[in-house]
Design a protein around this nucleic acid. Structure first.
Length: 276
DNA sequence: AAAACGCCCTGCAGGC
DNA sequence: TGCCTGCAGGGCGTTT
């Protein structure tokens, strides 16, 4: 499932594959992927040139000529790959952007959860999901006091709070479980009851975890692949996610798995402290 | 108003 | 070439 490190890896691998290319034609096989009118999406894109790809949290911003931007969210299983024009359509290919050099960008998504939205460049903070996002890890805005203020407003558990993209933008289920284990905070701790010193540690650990995961080109635990079809490398460093029942590497206690607001949550009941 | 819930989707694992 | 159920989950609309 692409979280911020995976989306950043997609950005880095996709950019050199499509930068500078001119769009000749767009095919939308599954219109629900497109937010707004799919025919209009295809029409507007025709003739435009790919200028750059940016990213905010888990959103890709594909910058085009004529002040247009495709805002793309991969959700659980969205993938991009570049193919030759006549490559047979995969069962889960949903959108195709054909370039003037007869290569084609395919968007593939087994669960069809991903979304693409065409907007005027610069309106992403009003017209898309980006409008509700908080600060990203490792950004200037993501300070210790920013996180302390964010948690102070929340009475709910820390697991749900860190998944809340308006508090910290870019974390998903894997990295939240990892960072709570690393910081020795129980996932059911009440967000506004965590001591300031622990919040400061949490902040630093979020930053270093995301930085390391990006350096490792993300985590592949299910089907995640970058735009070159390569898996990530961070899965070998996971301490809790996917390790239910295995001994905690710090204390040897078997890791537990519970549901927290509908999300699978793996943790060590001995060394992760609950704050209430 | 904050928090929780339900929905979208498909593939796969597990039980029988 | 089995069938059925539950699980995986990010974001968003709806409900509590």
């Amino acid at each position: 499932m692409p979280e911020m490190p995976e989306v950043e890896t997609v950005r880095r691998t996709l950019l050199p594959l499509i930068k500078g290319k001119t769009i000749k034609e767009v095919t939308v096989w599954y219109p629900k992927i497109i937010t707004g009118d799919a025919k209009e999406f295809a029409k507007q894109l025709t003739g435009k040139k790919i200028e750059n790809i940016e990213r905010y949290a888990k959103y890709l911003l594909i910058r085009l000529s004529d002040n247009l931007t495709i805002v793309s969210h991969l959700r659980m299983e969205g993938k991009y790959r570049l193919v030759k024009i006549n490559t047979k359509k995969d069962k889960h290919d949903h959108v195709q952007i054909i370039f003037s050099d007869n290569s084609a960008l395919r968007y593939n998504d087994v669960r069809k959860f991903g979304r693409m939205q065409l907007i005027k460049t610069g309106t992403e903070k009003e017209k898309t999901g980006i409008s509700k996002l908080g600060a990203e890890p490792n950004s200037a805005a993501f300070t210790v006091s920013y996180l302390q203020n964010g948690l102070a407003r929340k009475k709910k558990n820390i697991k749900s709070t860190l998944l809340d993209q308006s508090v910290v933008a870019g974390l998903g289920n894997i990295y939240v479980d990892e960072v709570l284990w690393e910081t020795k905070i129980h996932p059911l701790s009440q967000a506004n009851s965590i001591p300031a010193k622990k919040v400061a540690q949490l902040h630093d650990n979020i930053n270093s975890l995301i930085e390391l995961a990006i350096a490792e080109r993300g985590t592949t635990v299910h089907t995640y692949l970058d735009a070159n079809g390569k898996t990530g490398g961070f899965q070998k460093m996971l301490q809790v996610y996917g390790h239910k029942g295995e001994p905690c590497v710090r204390c040897g206690t078997p890791l537990e798995k519970i549901k927290v607001n509908g999300r699978g949550t793996t943790f060590c009941s001995k060394c992760q402290v609950i704050y209430k």
